[in-house]
């Protein structure tokens, strides 16, 4: 069970920081930082720079992403921004515009 959940009807404009994980099903504008996993669910809208341990995107994300471990863009995801992580997957059906930096 995720420690922090931004429900589908909720909009947060500002800064969210957590030492644990976070699931976004609603809207976040600003900045999103988590020590553990960040999940942006299908239907969610995030216009923010995201820093996390790992990141799974199924929804819409505009912003730059930095993950300690990995970034997975699922089918249906729509991502505009630069992605920096050691491991990155982009599933068939994901839309992505930006650069990928795997630090090679």
């Amino acid at each position: 069970m995720a420690s922090t959940v931004i429900g589908a009807g909720i909009t947060i404009e500002g800064e969210i920081a957590t030492d644990e994980d976070i699931v976004v099903a609603g809207t976040v504008r600003g900045k999103l930082t988590a020590k553990d996993s960040v999940t942006i669910e299908h239907g969610a809208t995030v216009e923010a720079d995201v820093v996390g341990g790992s990141l799974v995107v199924g929804g819409a994300l505009t912003g730059n992403v930095t993950a300690q471990e990995r970034v997975d863009l699922q089918s249906g995801a729509r991502v505009i921004g630069n992605v920096k992580a050691a491991r990155v997957t982009i599933a068939d059906g994901a839309q992505f515009k930006g650069s990928v930096d795997m630090d090679v």
Partner: peptide, 26 residues
């Protein structure tokens, strides 16, 4: 898996800090 009682429910966990405006339904 979100653990929320409802899709529109939200939860700011004990390790989380939010600075800004929160609005919406649920």
């Amino acid at each position: 898996a979100t653990g929320a009682r409802d899709a529109s429910d939200a939860r700011i966990g004990s390790a989380a800090r939010v600075r800004g405006r929160i609005q919406g339904q649920g």
